[in-house]
Amino acid sequence: MRDLSGDHRLLSLNTATVRRQGDLAAIVEACARHGIRAISPWRDQVEAVGLAPAVAAVREAGLALSGYCRGGMFPGDPSQAPAVRDDNRRAVDEAAALGAPCLVLVVGGLPQYARPGSAPSRDLGAARAQVEDGIHDLLGYARAAGMPLAIEPLHPMYAADRACVNTLAQALDLCDRLDPGRTGALGVACDVYHVWWDPDLLGQIARAGAERMLAYHVCDWLVPTRDLLLDRGMMGDGIIDLKPVRAAVEATGFAGFCEVEIFSEADWWRRPMDEVLETCIQRHRTVV
């Protein structure tokens, strides 16, 4: 396992972690000032400053990317299919322009939540079939652009509204069906917040291997959790045993960044950006 204690060169900041403190330009500047070498931006943050200025800011700061958030949200009414296709292709193009190593996919849940305006449904199996069809359709476009797709399984509490792919096993089954040659075009983003509870977690990480393990995200699970979306913990403040998970991820041959992704309405989004980044660096060196 890599030694993180001496520096933070393997730390990446998911820009959602400080989204309330400044726009993407301010986040890029702060990361460069703190010696953080990589970020993973969100599409709405890029859109707010403009794609070309975002590309220029990242390049001028000398930052790498650990991913780009996000594509997906595939389920919807048939009338929405062209919009789903076009939106995801734009996400691929943006990720490529920014130099991201992968586009993270949050696949969507039931149609009425993934694509508002769709007819209400309780058919989770049909939603999962739409997800598979959507990834299949996007994969050819992404391959041509040289942009790997990383399916991010989300905790089962999000199965209805955000992602009906909820375990690494489900995500890897999709990968095996859609990319049986393990070409590197399709893999997973492993976020500890969503998968820490899985009794088969370490086995599925090993199954992913270097070809499928495209991104690794860290934060912590608080007890109690006050909000299921917006109350993630800073690493070390919760109950996730982080080091064994990272050891398993790195045993696959994964050599990428450890990406800090924290949504924290009541805590970390209310603190100064510099304080948040300094804490991320300290916890990266001690508990990640």
Rank of each mutant, 00 (worst) to 15 (best):
R2Y: 13
L4T: 14
S5F: 09
R9P: 04
S12E: 10
N14T: 08
N14L: 03
N14Y: 05
T15C: 11
T17Q: 03
T17C: 04
V18P: 01
R19A: 04
R19K: 13
G22F: 06
L24I: 02
L24W: 00
E29V: 10
E29M: 11
A30W: 03
A38R: 03
S40C: 13
P41E: 01
R43V: 09
Q45P: 07
A48R: 15
G50F: 07
A52F: 05
P53V: 08
V55C: 10
A56F: 11
E60P: 00
S66E: 03
C69N: 15
R70G: 01
D77Q: 11
S79I: 14
Q80H: 07
A81Q: 15
V92K: 00
A95V: 09
L98G: 02
G99I: 06
P101A: 14
C102Q: 09
L103M: 11
V104H: 01
G108F: 08
P111E: 02
Y113H: 15
P120V: 12
D123A: 09
L124A: 11
A129W: 03
A129D: 11
D133L: 13
D133P: 05
I135E: 00
L139P: 09
G140W: 10
A142N: 02
R143F: 02
A145R: 15
M147P: 10
P148H: 06
L149E: 00
I151E: 07
P156G: 12
M157Y: 09
Y158V: 02
R162T: 02
C164V: 14
A169W: 08
A171V: 08
L172G: 01
D176P: 01
D179P: 08
D179Y: 08
R182F: 04
A185Q: 04
G187L: 03
V188W: 06
V188I: 14
V192K: 06
V195R: 09
W196Y: 12
L201H: 09
L202C: 00
A206R: 15
A208R: 08
R212G: 07
M213E: 00
L214T: 06
H217N: 13
W221H: 13
V223F: 08
P224E: 03
T225Q: 10
R226H: 10
I239E: 15
I239S: 12
D241A: 08
D241R: 13
L242T: 14
K243L: 14
P244N: 13
V245H: 07
V245L: 15
A248T: 05
A251V: 12
T252V: 13
T252G: 11
G253P: 10
F254K: 00
A255T: 15
G256E: 06
E261I: 04
S264A: 13
A266E: 14
R271M: 00
V276D: 01
R285P: 04
T286I: 05
